[in-house]
Design a protein around this nucleic acid. Structure first.
Length: 238
DNA sequence: ACAGGCTCCTGCAGGC
DNA sequence: TGCCTGCAGGAGCCTG
């Protein structure tokens, strides 16, 4: 099992039965070799969860998929808001999954700068664009822009080399720290073990509208950019 | 090329 | 206490 951007990818062995549209009765084996025959791809959306349970465990509301595991247990996909997605790929018929965007955790300075060259969109919108960078969501876009001191409505192509490098490092630091703390439990987010994250305690701007900036005490402002609630400090971010 | 609006969906918070 | 309304967001689609 690996990750590409926001997608969780399960590499699987050869299907024992031809896949059908209903997705039922496909025997597959987890495969760790370099050449999987199929893939199961999961996007958790906002509220999606993957749970490993016993087969006789009560089925939670909003359970949309149940997969039998050879261990005798079950892998379940639960998603109240249904923004998540499941995709099965038979690699004998198509290409393996690859997120189009670059990885924010490993991208280098030159490649990062090139992403935004000539891009006239708001930098916030560009950060959320998964075909550019894969894996940055709304919370981490806001927090990274604050950390880098950049206003969300700056045009991406107008950022200086220094600002872009600050942004690259901010993304890396914010994402790394958030992962270490188990993510942000802003509403009902929990991980596969049901544990809440703690990064929401570290938020500097996200959903702190009207509250004093932790750096300069100026009230945090909220606007809508790219259809998303967008939070920033009007003094710390230029 | 890009912004904005709308859509999907449900849980939760706020107001009365 | 209980009802209603509005809001949250990832991503695709449509329009301007």
């Amino acid at each position: 099992v690996h990750r590409t951007g926001k997608h969780i990818v399960f590499d699987l062995g050869a299907p024992g039965t031809e896949p059908n549209d209903s997705g039922e009765e496909i025997a597959l084996r987890a495969q760790s070799s370099a050449s999987p025959a199929a893939q199961w791809i999961v996007h958790l959306g906002m509220t999606g969860r993957l749970l490993v349970t016993n087969r006789d465990s009560p089925v939670a509301r909003h359970t949309h998929a149940r997969l039998d595991l050879s261990s005798g247990r079950e892998l379940r996909f639960v998603d109240p808001r249904r923004f998540g997605r499941l995709e099965f790929r038979d690699l004998r018929r198509g290409a393996a999954f690859g997120a189009p965007g670059a990885e924010p955790l490993t991208i280098g300075p030159r490649e990062f700068t090139a992403l935004f060259h000539g891009r006239r969109s708001f930098i916030k919108a560009a950060l959320l664009n998964q075909t550019l960078l894969a894996g940055v969501g709304n919370i981490y876009a806001d927090e990274s822009l604050f950390q880098a001191g950049i206003r969300p409505r700056r045009r991406a192509s107008r950022l200086t080399g220094t600002e872009l490098e600050q942004l690259r490092l901010a993304l890396r630091q914010i994402l790394t720290q958030a992962i270490r703390l188990g993510g942000s439990s802003v509403s009902d987010y929990v991980d596969a073990d049901g544990a809440r994250g703690f990064f929401q305690l570290e938020h500097r701007v996200y959903q702190r509208t009207g509250e004093p900036c932790r750096r300069c005490q100026t009230p945090i402002r909220r606007v809508v950019v790219a259809g998303r609630g967008t939070h920033y400090c009007p003094k710390c971010q230029r």
